[in-house]
Simulated scan of single mutants.
Amino acid sequence: MSLFPANWADIPLASLPLLGPLALFALVSSITPGPNNVMLASSGLNFGFRRSLPHLLGVNLGFSLMIFLVGIGLGSVFQQTPGLYTVLKYAGAAYLLYLAWKIANSGPMEEGETRGKPFTFLQAAAFQWINPKAWVMAVGVVATYTPQNGFFANLVIATLVCGIVNLPSIGIWVTFGTALRRVLHRPAAIRAFNIGMALLLVASLYPVALELLR
């Protein structure tokens, strides 16, 4: 079976009813707390919305690219070489712990320029490949919402839908963090917020921790 449809009109109409559930899945998955959203909220507080835009766009486009690449076969690489996925997963967990430590030790707003820098576009895009939640979302989209008949066209549509829904969903977290800049003026309050975000980031690793305990 070819991934490419012989004719774009051959895309089955039966796949269209999946667009609504797919959009809902993308919304719920994108807007709920996870490593990306915790880091975006922290970036919004410490650096503001404008300086966090490369981070925001890197997450959105990096995740969309991840869905597409997983769909066209990258996931099968990990099926054939499970050890590679295991290494990537635990390396990602270690990196998340490092990021949590960095967030917890972030300075107040006026120190943001000297004590740290927001993620760049490429850093945020690359981060998706070691983000456990991003992997779960990408595999879920490909396995559940991408019909096999006319697969490539459906994969492109699913990637576009997820990208469109994801951007405003994660943008809310940057906006939330930025809005807190007007409320949290005291260094102690900012430090408490950053520590809270760091703890949420650590808590997002609970699936990896449970696997280690088994």
Rank of each mutant, 00 (worst) to 15 (best):
1 M>S: 14
2 S>A: 14
2 S>W: 04
3 L>T: 10
5 P>M: 09
6 A>D: 13
9 A>D: 08
10 D>G: 06
11 I>C: 11
11 I>A: 11
14 A>T: 15
15 S>G: 09
17 P>G: 04
23 A>D: 03
24 L>N: 00
24 L>W: 15
24 L>M: 13
25 F>L: 12
29 S>V: 00
30 S>K: 04
30 S>Q: 06
30 S>C: 13
32 T>D: 12
33 P>T: 13
40 L>R: 11
43 S>I: 04
46 N>Y: 02
49 F>M: 09
50 R>Y: 01
54 P>C: 08
54 P>N: 03
55 H>Q: 07
55 H>T: 08
57 L>G: 02
57 L>Y: 05
58 G>P: 10
59 V>E: 07
59 V>C: 14
63 F>H: 11
65 L>Q: 03
67 I>P: 01
69 L>T: 14
69 L>C: 14
71 G>M: 13
72 I>S: 03
74 L>V: 15
74 L>Y: 08
76 S>I: 12
78 F>L: 09
79 Q>L: 14
80 Q>C: 10
81 T>S: 08
82 P>M: 09
84 L>E: 09
84 L>M: 10
85 Y>Q: 12
86 T>W: 12
91 A>E: 04
92 G>L: 02
92 G>S: 09
93 A>L: 03
97 L>Y: 06
98 Y>G: 12
98 Y>I: 01
99 L>M: 14
99 L>H: 03
103 I>N: 01
107 G>M: 04
108 P>G: 15
110 E>M: 08
111 E>N: 02
112 G>M: 01
112 G>W: 00
114 T>D: 01
114 T>S: 07
115 R>I: 06
118 P>A: 09
119 F>N: 07
121 F>E: 06
122 L>D: 06
122 L>K: 10
123 Q>N: 08
125 A>Y: 01
125 A>F: 05
126 A>S: 12
127 F>Q: 06
129 W>K: 13
130 I>A: 10
133 K>S: 11
134 A>P: 05
137 M>V: 12
138 A>H: 01
139 V>Y: 13
139 V>P: 03
141 V>S: 00
143 A>N: 13
145 Y>Q: 10
149 N>D: 11
150 G>T: 08
150 G>R: 09
152 F>T: 02
154 N>H: 06
157 I>S: 04
158 A>N: 01
159 T>D: 07
160 L>I: 15
162 C>E: 00
165 V>K: 03
167 L>R: 02
170 I>P: 07
172 I>D: 05
175 T>V: 15
179 A>D: 04
184 L>P: 00
186 R>K: 12
189 A>T: 09
190 I>M: 06
190 I>K: 01
192 A>V: 14
193 F>D: 00
197 M>D: 03
200 L>K: 08
200 L>G: 13
201 L>R: 02
203 A>K: 07
203 A>P: 02
206 Y>G: 05
208 V>Q: 15
208 V>N: 13
211 E>S: 12
212 L>H: 14
212 L>P: 11
212 L>V: 14
